[in-house]
Design a protein around this nucleic acid. Structure first.
Length: 469
RNA sequence: GGCCCCGUCGUCCAGCGGCCUAGGACGCCGGCCUUUCAAGCCGGUAACGCGGGUUCGAAUCCCGUCGGGGCUGCCA
C-alpha cells in the first residue's frame, strides 16, 4: 500500500522532475511476492493520482521500456546475472539459508561482523558449474572488489564513503531464480536510464551495493539523494503504532489532496523562510533536491489538520459541498435526496468554516436530515434552565410561526425582537432554541440553521423540546 | 557490537561567520469579536544538546562528547 513516507518520496521525485523538466517514472517493484498484490499496486497508483502526481512514463501510461513491472522482467535480471557470473563479477553460492543463519549467529556471539564470509567465492568456477549442473540450489552473490572503497556525492548529504570491509558479498539472485531488490532496482535504473534516485535515508547504506552493481554492469551510476525519514510522535520510524501510515486513511478521513501535498512538501523542505501555504505551482517553481533538509521529520497530524482546514475554507463553496457530499451520505448511511442536497448547499458556507476534515460534516449537519432530534444530554442540562427555557421555547414557537417569508433575515428580526421584549440576552435566549432544534449547543449560526431546517420542522422541534422539559 | 546519518522552540521549517537581544508555521496560553462553535484579529510561551578550539566575531567552521536514528537477510 502507499505509505505516507513513500508518498512524500514520490512527491519530492515529482517536484524535482517537474522543476527540471525531467521525466517522472512510476515503476512497480514487486519482487517480493508476498507483499506484492494487484490490490497493493492499485492502492499505490490511486494514491499517487489522488495527490496529483502524474507520471510521464511507467506502469499504465507505458513508455519505451516495457511494462515497468519487475515481475515481467525476470529474464532480463537473470541475463544480467549470467553475464556477471561469466565475467567473474558474481558467483554462485551453495550455502543454505540455515547454514547462513547459523554462521551469522555464531559471528554475532563472537563479536565478529555478521556478513557473509565469502567462502563460495573461493570455489573454482568449474566446480561451481558442476554442482549447479547437478541440481544443487544456489543463489548468486556479487563479488565485491576487495580491498576497495565506494564513494559518491549524495545531493542532500554530501560526500559519502564506504570501505568495502563493511560490505559482504550480497545476494543478487535468489536460489529460486528471482532477483533481490538490489539487483532488480539497479538493473531497472540502468535500463530505464534513470538519472536521479531520490529515496528514503534507510537506503543510504545500500547505495554502495547499488553503485557496485551498476559498475559491474559497466554503466554509470545515477545521482543519489537520500531523503530524511519520517518519524512518529515518539521519534521512531513512522509505523502502524502511530495511527495511520497509509495515505488511504487520510483520503478516507476527509483530507484534501492539495492540503496533503502542501503538508508533505513541508516535511524536509520549505518554500522559503516565511511561507507555509503554497500551491503546487509555487512548489514546482522552487523545489531543489539540494535544499532538502537532512533531519528526520516528525509527521504532525495536528498541523496537517490545521492546514486541511485552511484549504477547506479556501475552496469555492460548490467545490466544498461536492467534496463533502460523499462524507455526508456515508455518515447518514444513505443517499441525499434532491431537496436535502439543496438544504445542505444553503448552509454549506457556514459548515465550511467550521470543519477541518470533511469527515466532520455529517456530525455538524446531521440534525437537518434526521426526523428525531438526538439530544446531547450535557448540552441539554447546561442550557435548558427550568426558569427560562419553557417561556423561550413557547414564545419562539409562537413568533416564528408568523415569520414571512421564512428566511434568516426575518427569523433574526423576529427572534431579536423577542429577546428585547423578554429582556434577556442573546446568549441566554438563543441557546435553548439551538438545543431544541439541533440537539446540541454547538451548531452553525442559528438563524441560517432554522432557515435551512424549514418552518415546519423548527416549530415541531420547539414543541417537542418544550414537552421534554 | 560494526558501519553510516542526524542534532535550532513540544513539532515542522528559516538561518550557510557579523543583518540573531535567533525568524515563520502548528500546538499551547491570554485577549478582542460574538447567538453557540468555529473562523478572523491582537498578544504571549518556547530552541541553537554539552565541552573544547579556530576567529576581532560562531547557531553557523573544526575536534571531542552525549543523545537520537538507520542499516547490518536468499525483506524492500
Amino acid at each position: 500500500y502507499l505509505h505516507i513516507g513513500n508518498a512524500r518520496s514520490a512527491l519530492f521525485n515529482w517536484l524535482y522532475a517537474r522543476h527540471t523538466g525531467g521525466v517522472f517514472i512510476v515503476r512497480i517493484d514487486d519482487t517480493d511476492r508476498g507483499r506484492s498484490t494487484r490490490e497493493y499496486e492499485e492502492d499505490v497508483l490511486a494514491g499517487l493520482r489522488w495527490l496529483g502526481l502524474d507520471w510521464d512514463e511507467g506502469v499504465e501510461v507505458g513508455g519505451p521500456h516495457g511494462t515497468y513491472r519487475q515481475s515481467d522482467r525476470l529474464e532480463r535480471y537473470q541475463q544480467v546475472v549470467a553475464e556477471l557470473v561469466a565475467s567473474r563479477r558474481a558467483y554462485p553460492c551453495f550455502c543454505t539459508p540455515e547454514e547462513l543463519a547459523e554462521r551469522r549467529e555464531e559471528a554475532q556471539r563472537q563479536g565478529r561482523p555478521p556478513g557473509y564470509d565469502g567462502r563460495c567465492r573461493l570455489l573454482e568456477p568449474e566446480t561451481a558449474a558442476a554442482r549447479a549442473a547437478a541440481g544443487e540450489p544456489a543463489s548468486v552473490r556479487l563479488a565485491v572488489p576487495r580491498p576497495g572503497e565506494t564513494t559518491f556525492d549524495d545531493v542532500v548529504r554530501g560526500e559519502m564513503r564506504f570501505g568495502h570491509e563493511v560490505l559482504d558479498d550480497f545476494v543478487i539472485l535468489r536460489s529460486d531464480g528471482s532477483p533481490t531488490y538490489h539487483l532488480a532496482s539497479t538493473v531497472d535504473d540502468v535500463d530505464y536510464r534513470i538519472t536521479h534516485v531520490a529515496r528514503g535515508e534507510d537506503l543510504l547504506s545500500s547505495t554502495p551495493r547499488h553503485i557496485l552493481l551498476t559498475e559491474a554492469m559497466g554503466e554509470p551510476s545515477p545521482i543519489y539523494a537520500h531523503l530524511p525519514l519520517l518519524f512518529g510522535p515518539d521519534g521512531r520510524k513512522l509505523s502502524k503504532r502511530h495511527g495511520d501510515t497509509a495515505l488511504r486513511a487520510y483520503i478516507e478521513g476527509g483530507y484534501l489532496a492539495d492540503a496533503m501535498f502542501n503538508y508533505l512538501g513541508l516535511l524536509g523542505w520549505s518554500y522559503d523562510a516565511e511561507t507555509t501555504i503554497f500551491s503546487r505551482r509555487q512548489a514546482v517553481e522552487r523545489f531543489e533536491l539540494a535544499d532538502v533538509s537532512k533531519n528526520p521529520a516528525v509527521f504532525d497530524v495536528d498541523k496537517l489538520q490545521w492546514m486541511n482546514g485552511e484549504y477547506v475554507r479556501a475552496a469555492a463553496v460548490d467545490q466544498f459541498a461536492a467534496a463533502a457530499r460523499p462524507f455526508l451520505e456515508r455518515g447518514l448511511g444513505r443517499a441525499l435526496e434532491e431537496g436535502e442536497w439543496d438544504r445542505f448547499r444553503s448552509i454549506a458556507p457556514l459548515v465550511q468554516e467550521r470543519v477541518k476534515l470533511l469527515q466532520e460534516v455529517p456530525g455538524m449537519v446531521g440534525f437537518l436530515y434526521r426526523e428525531e432530534v438526538d439530544y446531547d444530554e450535557a448540552s441539554w442540562k447546561k442550557v435548558m434552565k427550568p426558569d427560562l427555557a419553557p417561556q423561550v421555547l413557547e414564545e419562539a414557537r409562537a413568533r416564528l410561526s408568523a415569520v414571512e417569508p421564512w428566511d434568516h433575515r426575518g427569523i433574526e428580526e423576529t427572534l431579536r425582537a423577542m429577546l428585547a421584549d423578554l429582556g434577556i440576552g442573546a446568549g441566554k435566549g438563543l441557546q435553548p432554541i439551538r438545543v431544541a432544534v439541533t440537539g446540541t449547543s454547538v451548531s452553525p449560526p442559528l438563524f441560517e440553521t432554522l432557515e435551512a431546517l424549514g418552518r415546519q420542522r423548527t416549530l415541531a422541534r420547539l414543541v417537542a423540546a418544550a414537552g421534554r422539559l
